[in-house]
Design a protein around this nucleic acid. Structure first.
Lengths: 122, 122
DNA sequence: CATTTATTCAACCATTTGGTTGACAACGGC
DNA sequence: GCCGTTGTCAACCAAATGGTTGAATAAATG
């Protein structure tokens, strides 16, 4: 495991079973047994999946007698969303600047419109 | 490799080196050699990383003589963003409904703060 | 044509991952 | 106090991952 949180979150969601578990926890909290029920793998395997999600900070577990209800921690999603948005937007701005350059090369210039050059914001 | 695209995209971004490569491609296209230069791993290792990103649809490669310039395909990010947003929002709405119920139980019909309250989480 | 440059392919190795089974701990209900 | 239930821990295994080195391909350059 690559040890930083963002890596753990991405890695956790790289497995369809785990994404499925997240999807179901978005609807409501559930115990390990309830989560394991739909799959034909062992409860232990699902327990491991939940551990991976918990280590990534995506899920927390409470206690109710011998049960350990799982709860989705949706805030961690922001970590990913921010990372993604940052580079998506950065790439998009680059395309816009490229478009502007190409337009200018065509003699199709708009010299009085500086709004396209929003600095590459790091 | 878990074979569906979403899994491949998440898995691709679970590695810090690959996220770094994406970050640099967001600034501008680059050849494999240029991308490999900052790291002290072999060029072959970086070539493999790029293959993983390409298989996920995050990167495409063109040809310029013997060079193969890499280009970030930012649209694929939307796939992730949509998945994430869907369940983040779903969970958020659930908390809001829960808050509403709790408020009603307290006889507190107009909660001043409609946001989810952290305190209740385990 | 031979060489250098840029990249990938192939084989190999260590580590991680996702699964298994078996044992064990913690708790509620007789 | 002894079962059944719920979940985790431990050991193990096959497959995937990320790295290595060495050879092969492809294209510009002398």
């Amino acid at each position: 495991m690559v040890d930083d949180q963002l890596s753990r979150v991405f890695a956790a969601l790289a497995d369809p079973t785990r994404r499925d578990i997240v999807a179901r926890l978005a609807v409501g909290d559930a115990t390990v047994g309830q989560l394991a029920e739909p799959y034909d793998v062992s409860v232990q395997a699902v327990s491991k999946h939940i551990k991976v999600l918990a280590d990534a900070g995506l899920v927390s577990q409470g206690r109710d007698a011998q049960r350990r209800p799982c709860h989705l921690e949706a805030e961690v999603f922001d970590l990913m969303t921010k990372w993604i948005e940052r580079y998506r937007q950065q790439a998009q701005e680059r395309y816009e600047r490229l478009d502007a350059v190409l337009a200018e090369m065509r003699g199709d210039e708009q010299p009085a419109n500086p709004r396209h050059q929003q600095g590459a914001a790091s």
